[in-house]
Amino acid sequence: MEPIVLNYQVDGEDFSTAGEASSAVKKALKQLGFSPDVIRRVAIAMYEGEINMVIHADGGEATAEISQEEIRIILADRGPGIKDIDLAMQEGYSTAPEEVRNLGFGAGMGLPNIKKYSDELKIESTPGVGTTLRILIRT
């Protein structure tokens, strides 16, 4: 199978549309015949990342590179960046505002959850410049 690249702009203005890119990737993986376990891991990891982009960074760009052996998800934003990545990786640590918690998110589980469901997670972040998440899931 030739690698397939899917690219999406994530709108940071509208919380109600967050998850559209993850939903589209999930549907594509289903059509391509990946196992339900792989599809769910990709869907959850990407969705958590997409929600983070909307909550913290006014959106950004989401890319999925799909091949037979592995799926790579790249989430790049130009948001405020993560000051302390080790702290952000701790379960329960969150900088999300109260209104985000009222929407059911911001429990400080996003990044730890992405790590849990992926085989590799790389975070590049520069305060004031932006954050890029590289998520690898082997099939």
């Binding site: 109600s16 967050a18 998850g19 939903s23 339900p36 769910r40 869907a43 969705y47 929407l103 059911g104």
Partner: peptide, 16 residues
């Protein structure tokens, strides 16, 4: 759930 926004559906969708 008692939460009502589209992300409830998105969450359910991601979790099959």
């Amino acid at each position: 759930t008692g939460l009502m926004n589209p992300q409830v559906v998105r969450t359910a969708q991601m979790m099959d």
